[in-house]
Design a binder for these strands. Structure first.
Length: 233
DNA sequence: GAGATGATCTTA
DNA sequence: AAGATCATCTCC
């Protein structure tokens, strides 16, 4: 039985993943998020999307993530303890940690595993790439790109292949979205399961993490053309 | 297609 | 001074 198509109407009915999903080892959360949908509601009370209209949904399927283990992970922002920037990571799981990087870009994370019952605190998962699902035109506008009428995957991937790109495509900023609850049905930024089958996953080292270069805590959907960087072998 | 470089600014 | 990046340039 084919599932119904993922138009705005179908996406609007999906419920956010429960908080228990995020109350686990960040590596399990990072794997579990692959294939899930990141859904952004934009409207009169949401961040500006230019001339995109009043009420619409932007969504993408998560195809690439990275786990950050917090207090025991030298590559993690939380490694050196709580600061004004990373305070969200020391709060309850399932909340957005959005930070500004390299003077140009935002990166979007989900907090997880804030308790000490497995030996570390303040973990999170960085969302690194999406397969565009809904709101292609609006995402193009937000990214400042012009795509042809029937874009190929190689063109679509310009929208959301990379943490800075996907954040821009969904109008995610620290000002608007840091500390936002991914688990609240009232949230304009959620992650949901549409029942798609569990993907095949490849683990690699994390991108541009120099302080812990060997840990294979980056996860990608095998074969997806929407993963960031070069094509994998 | 691949590798190098500059932009730009927050954080420690 | 470095960084959980990206667009653009040059040269294969």
């Amino acid at each position: 039985m084919p599932r119904p198509p993922l138009n705005s109407r179908a996406l609007a009915k999906l419920s956010p993943l429960p908080r228990s999903f995020y109350s686990r080892d960040p590596r399990l959360v990072a794997r579990g998020l692959l294939g899930k949908l990141l859904i952004r509601h934009v409207g009169p009370h949401s961040p500006s999307v230019g001339e995109c209209g009043n009420r619409l949904i932007l969504a993408g399927r998560i195809v690439e993530t990275e786990a950050y283990l917090g207090a025991i992970d030298p590559g993690a922002h939380a490694y050196r303890g709580q600061t004004a920037r990373n305070a969200v990571l020391f709060g309850p799981p399932g909340h957005a940690y959005v930070y500004f990087i390299y003077g140009n870009h935002y990166c979007t994370n989900v907090s997880c595993q804030p308790t000490e019952n497995v030996g570390y605190v303040a973990g999170c998962v960085l969302l690194r790439a999406l397969e565009p699902v809904c709101g292609i035109d609006e995402m193009s506008t937000l990214r400042g790109l012009t795509l042809p009428p029937n874009p190929k995957p190689s063109q679509l991937r310009q929208l959301t292949s990379g943490p800075g790109r996907l954040s821009q495509a969904l109008a995610i900023t620290r000002q608007h979205d840091n500390a936002k609850d991914f688990c609240s049905p009232a949230s304009d930024l959620i992650i949901a399961d549409d029942g798609s089958p569990a993907p095949s996953i490849l683990a690699t080292t994390r991108i541009n993490v120099t302080r812990a270069p060997l840990d294979e805590w980056r996860f990608v959907i095998i074969g997806s053309p929407y993963v960031s960087g070069k094509k994998l072998s």
